[in-house]
Nucleic acid binder design. Structure first.
Length: 407
DNA sequence: CGTCCACGTCTAC
DNA sequence: TAGACCTGGACGG
């Protein structure tokens, strides 16, 4: 559940599932977890959640009592407690019966009912963490989704920061400025603007203005959206002007998909999978960035691309450097807003699909065969996607939404 | 069986 | 700028 959209969806999930539920007793932690104990015990309390970028905050609120003093004496909580969570690579919340706790449920809140139910923070890899009596982590910037104006201002007013010396794709993962952007979002955002991932960040951002002069059509929910009539300078570069705005709108698209966002294990993953245009999409290229993270993109990598075999895996794969001819035959959708359509593919074997593409665009086939067949001739598909995914069952459930044309 | 890969931070050389 | 921190699914032999 890791990027901004998933964290926000998690907060919506908690609020929906826990609405009207009365929790009771102590908060329990698994034996194996290294995160701190949560010193909160209360006979009756509620749980609500909010999110900001890549963090979720749960608020435990004791229910009103006629004898607060007595309760305090008994060691019962009187004041609300906030717990801030980071999800690492695999964290999420789940509300289940006490007898069906998920594996890796490392922090649990028990309801007061007879057959009680439990809100669990589940995290298989344990890279996630929680902080009792915590606050939003200092150093993380404003939320890209719900603090858009301040997020934008924070970036535009700090372009002299050395942090912007780096490639734009790496800067997009800097949570001090892009709180909520993660690996799939950076790929999707840069892809839509056709911005080479390894271009100096400052060069891409410095032409932007502190205020969003382009996206006024749609009011930015949650923020002042006051009518900035300032006529947009006709000379400003539209493409760059869109970058910060896309850092806001693209994540919100995921929230509005209604699913759970990135979660290959879930049945409703197909909707999200269909939404992806670049990340892990068959036919796209990928390289390991300077931090070892896989950057998915299309077209040029950009001048700051890691030299030679920078990727650990690339080395191993390098052995199979036979390919060439990765002519994406299925990529007939690259009709994005092309401003400069110059194809000056210069980079050599730096990119390619990390996995062996010996098998014509294989990577994750298998289930695809079937899938393609099942896929309605929606022809105009923006992209031919091919991933494994467990959602194979077309129509896994009655709630399958029609494959809405992306967008 | 083993290797590679994954939605992210953290902190030690 | 490397590891470290973890589990588990996909895939290869």
């Amino acid at each position: 559940m890791p990027e901004g959209p998933e964290l926000h969806l998690a907060s919506l999930y908690v609020n929906k599932m826990c609405e009207g539920v009365v929790f009771s007793g102590a908060v329990r932690k698994s034996e194996v977890s290294k995160s701190p104990d949560v010193p909160f015990t209360c006979d009756a309390y509620r749980i609500t959640a909010t999110s900001r970028g890549k963090e979720v905050k749960l608020t435990l609120t004791p229910m009103k009592s006629d004898e607060p003093k007595q309760r305090a004496k008994a060691g019962q909580a009187v004041q609300p407690m906030d717990i801030v969570f980071r999800f690492g690579m695999s964290g999420f919340f789940r509300f289940t019966g006490e007898d069906e706790l998920p594996k890796h449920a490392h922090l649990r809140f028990y309801s007061k009912e007879k057959p009680c139910r439990v809100l669990s923070f589940v995290d298989a890899r344990r890279f996630g963490s929680w902080h009792p009596n915590g606050t939003w982590q200092a150093g993380r910037g404003p939320c890209i989704m719900f603090e858009y104006e301040s997020f934008r201002e924070n970036v535009v007013s700090h372009l002299s920061d050395r942090a912007f010396d780096r490639p734009i794709c790496e800067v997009l993962l800097n949570q001090k400025y892009f709180n909520g952007i993660g690996n799939y979002l950076r790929a999707e955002i840069l892809f839509r603007l056709n911005i080479p991932p390894f271009v100096p960040a400052r060069a891409v951002l410095e032409s932007l203005e502190s205020e969003d002069l382009f996206g006024n059509q749609k009011p930015v929910k949650n923020e002042i959206s006051d009518t900035k009539k300032k006529a947009a300078k006709s000379g400003v570069k539209q493409e760059t002007a869109d970058l910060l705005r896309l850092c806001h709108t693209v994540p919100l698209e995921v929230v509005n998909l209604g699913g759970k966002g990135y979660d290959p294990q879930k049945a409703d993953y197909s909707g999200f999978e269909a939404w992806l245009q670049c990340y892990y999409v068959d036919g796209m290229k990928s390289i390991r960035d300077h931090n070892g993270r896989t950057m998915w993109f299309n077209g040029e990598a950009g001048p700051l691309a890691p030299k030679d075999s920078k990727s650990p895996k690339a080395k191993k794969r390098a052995k199979k450097e036979d390919d060439h001819d990765y002519t994406d035959k299925k990529k007939a959708a690259r009709s994005r807003s092309e401003s400069t359509a110059k194809k000056k593919v210069k980079q050599e074997g730096v990119t390619k699909t990390p996995k062996k593409e010996k098998e014509a665009g294989s990577t994750r086939k298998k289930t695809e065969k079937t899938r393609e067949i099942n896929t309605p001739q929606r022809e105009t598909r923006t992209n031919a996607r091919t991933r494994k995914s467990s959602s194979a069952e077309t129509t896994a459930g009655p709630k399958r939404q029609n494959v809405r044309g992306t967008r």
